[in-house]
Each structure stands twice: as C-alpha cells, then as structure tokens.
C-alpha cells in the first residue's frame, strides 16, 4: 500500500507492506539513521519519534499507521532542541550516544507538554524517561540537566 505523511516537514509518499514497521521505513527508506533499532520490542526507546507531536516507539508502530500523520525524528528537531542540547552538554549527560536521539525526542515531547512555568517533578521525569534506556551514564547528569532546565 502507499502512504503519505510528512517527515520533518517534508511530504513523503512511500510504498509499504502491511507488516513493515515504522523503524524500517524511516531508517532504511527515508535515511533517518536517528531512528535506531536496538531492542525492537518497545523497551529501550532508541527508536523514539514524534507522531503528531506525541512520542512513540517506531519499532511498535506499523508503518501504515504513519499515513496522514506528521512525523518528526531527532534529525528534524532543529531549534526546538537547542536549549535541551546545551544543558545536556554542560552536564556531560551523553556518553556513547546511541540512545541519544530517542532520548532527545522524549525530552522535547515532555518539556513542550509541560505548561509554561510549571516545574517538572522528578517523578514525572523518571516516569517518562524510564522508556529510554541508557547503559552508559547512570542518568545522574541527565536528571540534573533537565530538572534544572525546567525550574
């Protein structure tokens, strides 16, 4: 079947099979290497993307369901992610970086959802980011960076 969607603002028209996952279409056909396959069962969050503004595991998303949606990958975040990236850099929150694009998507979704001036609670941050596994960092610098950003 053919599907149409926007990817990082660009219109896309792609031939997909019923069992294709969004990961393979985005990474292999659309060249979005930020959409990484690691567990492929929705546990690690390395493939996290935005679909109509909400974060989703691309590995659990049937590609056909992207039809008519607005998809954003880490490659397409542009200035929306600048402040977050600055904080993560200052705190040394990223190491090998394989989890980083998925993590960045989750952070953008979380911080854009929080109403202006609302302080992000530690527990909410942890609940959201528990779906983004990082094997390197121990999360300490990440938590510090983001809680400080939102306060």
């Amino acid at each position: 079947m053919r599907i149409s969607f926007t990817l990082n603002g660009e219109p896309q028209n792609r031939q997909v099979n019923p069992f294709d996952k969004a990961t393979s279409i985005l990474a292999e056909q659309c060249g979005q290497e930020s959409v990484k396959t690691s567990c492929a069962i929705g546990r690690c969050g390395a493939c996290t993307i935005l679909v109509d503004g909400k974060s989703a595991n691309a590995c659990l998303l049937i590609a056909a369901k992207m039809d008519g949606t607005d998809v954003v990958t880490a490659e397409g975040l542009g200035a929306r992610a600048d402040a977050i990236i600055d904080r993560l850099r200052q705190n040394g929150a990223i190491q090998c970086g394989y989890c980083a694009p998925g993590l960045l998507i989750s952070l953008v979704a979380l911080l854009e959802r929080a109403p202006d001036g609302d302080k992000l609670e530690r527990q909410e941050l942890e609940t959201v980011l528990a779906g983004n596994l990082c094997r390197c960092s121990g999360y300490t610098a990440l938590r510090k960076a983001i809680l400080a950003l939102s306060s």
């Binding site: 993560l88 990223i94 090998c96 694009p101």
Partner: peptide, 10 residues
C-alpha cells in the same frame, strides 16, 4: 565526549 550534538540529533 566529542560529537555530542551530532549524537543527539542523530
């Protein structure tokens, strides 16, 4: 680490 922004932006 080197390449931090590139890592985050994929």
């Amino acid at each position: 680490v080197t390449g931090l922004e590139e890592k985050l932006r994929g």
